[in-house]
Computed example of a mutant assay.
Amino acid sequence: MTKSPQFKPSKKCSIDFSTTIGPASIAPKTIAPKTVAIVCFDDAQLLDITGPMQVFSSANDLYEGDVKPYRLLTIAENDKIKTTSGLELAVEPLSLAPDQLDTLIISGGRGINRFAGNKAILQWLDMMNRKTRRTASVCSGSLALAKLGLLDGKKATTHWSRIDEFRRDYPSVLWTNEAIFIRNGKIWTSAGITSGVDMALAMVEEDLGFNLAKSVARHLVVYLRRPGGQSQFSELLDFYCEDERFNLLNQWIMKNLSRPLSVAMLAEKCGMSERNFSRLYTRDTGSSPAKAIELFRLEAARQYLEQNWSIKKTARQCGFGSEETLRRVFQRHLHVSPQNYRDRFSRLPDE
């Protein structure tokens, strides 16, 4: 097993850790650790807590200096909570929480409505937010930020399953489900559950630089998603329907994207006339066959580009015919070029 690289500050380093962003931002030995607190509650989602916490903990492990960059706390109203998975966690009670936090992260989960409905909790969050460098939420934890008015007029994200509800209840917030995480000044919001890991990696990168964040991502066997611009879920889920013939057909399409795929060919695969096939497929999946094929090709292209494939090879493998066609499809659906998408979301290169 390859040992993860350690990062040691230079003896000549005089960079201000609290303000510098970028690969050179390695903390001097005299800098005190930044206190990162994840606030949770009964019926919190376990991964909302442990995901970001592990990112910061791994950053401590991989940072080789006299002072570790982060002091980590888990805070709740009382001294223990029971998560939605049934696992109980011992935490720091609110009454013993420090007066000053660098980064405050609010977890999500089924208990968020009760938590965010507690006026004393909201008052404490509001007071702490006035003193933090960063205030953030994971998943439905954004409800607490919305109740405090911290998201008014700002773009924000949350778990896709609650976004319609939040749009209705907090119309002054610009809710979107087309992002893994969003930063507005000191306020950060992340989407569903594991996206808290992506957000925490971006925070580590801001604090300690790209190289250390990349090392943490390698250590955790996850992607380093720097800009936070990917959708929360695959569009392919929308094409599953009650008619198993079409589900099997869609699986076949995904395995044969490099071939020329016509409506006549697909209709024949299903044993239908072209007209009847197009009508039933559109009715059951909500998309015409032609649009579905384009989206399947787009989804496959995204995955290949995330594996750092070339644009030319991706276009050929996904059946686009040309790089220009691939570019037009990416611009139409994702508003970004294939090259830019690959630069932003490709897996960490082998070294």
Rank of each mutant, 00 (worst) to 15 (best):
M1N: 01
F7D: 06
F7M: 03
S10P: 04
K12H: 04
D16G: 01
S18G: 10
T20N: 03
A24L: 11
I26A: 08
A27L: 00
P33A: 01
K34L: 00
I38V: 14
D42N: 15
L47P: 04
L47V: 14
M53L: 15
S57L: 14
S58D: 09
S58H: 07
N60H: 08
P69C: 03
L72V: 06
I75P: 06
I75N: 04
A76G: 04
K80L: 00
K82N: 11
L96P: 01
A97Q: 15
P98F: 07
Q100R: 13
Q100K: 13
D102F: 06
T103W: 05
I105P: 03
I105L: 10
R110K: 13
I112Y: 01
A116L: 02
A116T: 03
N118D: 12
I121R: 05
L125H: 07
D126H: 08
M127F: 10
R133K: 13
R134T: 08
S137N: 01
S137R: 00
S142K: 02
A146S: 13
L150D: 00
L151Q: 00
K154V: 02
A156N: 09
T157F: 01
T158N: 06
F166M: 06
F166Y: 12
V173F: 06
L174D: 01
K186C: 06
I187P: 04
W188D: 04
M199K: 08
M199G: 01
A200S: 04
L201A: 09
M203P: 06
E206Q: 10
L212N: 12
K214C: 08
K214W: 01
S215A: 15
S215K: 09
R218Y: 04
R218T: 12
V221N: 13
Y223S: 15
R226H: 11
G228P: 02
D238E: 09
F239Q: 11
D243K: 15
R245K: 14
N247A: 03
Q251V: 10
W252D: 12
N256F: 04
L257D: 11
R259T: 09
L261Q: 06
A264H: 12
A267C: 13
E268Y: 13
C270A: 07
S273T: 10
S273I: 01
E274S: 15
N276C: 12
L280D: 09
Y281G: 14
R283N: 09
D284G: 02
T285A: 08
T285M: 11
S288G: 05
E294Q: 14
F296P: 04
L298C: 03
A300Q: 11
R302F: 01
I311A: 04
F320M: 09
G321F: 08
S322D: 10
R328I: 09
R332E: 14
R332N: 14
S337R: 12
N340H: 08
R344C: 00
S346A: 14
D350E: 13
D350W: 08
